[in-house]
Design a binder for these strands. Structure first.
Lengths: 149, 149
DNA sequence: CGCAGTCTTTAGAGTTCTTCCAGATTGTTG
DNA sequence: CAACAATCTGGAAGAACTCTAAAGACTGCG
């Protein structure tokens, strides 16, 4: 009853949890990012959404916030195209489909993909992360619209 | 005996093979790229090398050439960092180590890495390529210098 | 060989994405 | 609520890349 009336509560806790001051801008952006299903956004996209949602925020702040959230482990950066960064709200270990035609990025569901027999890291280094991008191109038939992005 | 005295012959054939006019610039860049072992370079890097090698060529031409070689299948583009493109002279199917500290990109040798149980592509699409990046960070001990890049 | 005619190259301007800056604003703490 | 620090902002700056229009270099044909 109470929580239902306080939509900010969840994201607020999230910001406090990582020691980021809960400003109007950060709260608003966090709601856009974390309320609803997993998302993959660029800074420009998120900025556009923020303006549409009547959240006055500058592009510089969107960049700052995305980077801070990423450092704090709330987001994960995914690089698939030169000169563009995507931010993924799903920080668990998983991989991606990238639709080259449209620039859409999607999680590969479940554990449908396994990397077998990882090579050992060269001397003096250790593996920090393994990224797999499955690049897709549009086929003859039109794709169905997905729920999330 | 003869071929040993004509170092340009191999790259010349290569350019002719893909229908690119063998200009001084393209020949020079092709030699830097394809004579010697497999390489991973950025446009700026290659431009620097060209100048050091007394090959007068503009940065715009380096970009043009790298893109043309890629379209022709002589190179493969690899994206690992936001806002930077690497070009790989090894066009066969393989994956990469990326050393986050230094920005070095290296091939993962042999078939030491296998992607198991690829998910099926979403309706209306088909898989064009699968990229695997194993991201490394430097450990305590210093890494040994590699032969190629 | 020589000269169209076409393809390439080039310097510099332009684009896009992102970060930096310095001053104004906001959140927090006592 | 004052004071201090953290944050936000628009605009300038930067990095990587592409575009443009004019000059230069190959190639094929005569």
């Amino acid at each position: 009853m109470m929580t239902a009336n306080r939509p900010y509560k969840l994201v607020l806790d999230r910001l406090n949890g990582v020691g980021l001051r809960p400003t109007r801008q950060r709260l608003g952006l966090a709601r856009l990012l974390f309320e609803g299903c997993d998302r993959h956004v660029t800074a420009e996209q998120l900025h556009g959404e923020a303006l549409s949602a009547d959240l006055r925020v500058s592009l510089a702040t969107v960049y700052n916030t995305l980077n801070q959230f990423t450092e704090a482990g709330l987001l994960r950066e995914v690089v698939v195209e030169a000169g563009k960064s995507y931010f993924d709200t799903n920080t668990s270990e998983h991989h991606h489909f990238f639709l080259e035609n449209t620039g859409r990025l999607e999680d590969i569901p479940g554990d449908h993909l396994v990397v077998q027999s990882l090579p050992k890291a060269p001397v003096g280094t250790r593996i920090a992360r393994v990224d797999v991008i499955v690049r897709l191109v549009e086929d003859a038939s039109p794709a169905t619209a997905p729920f999330c992005d």
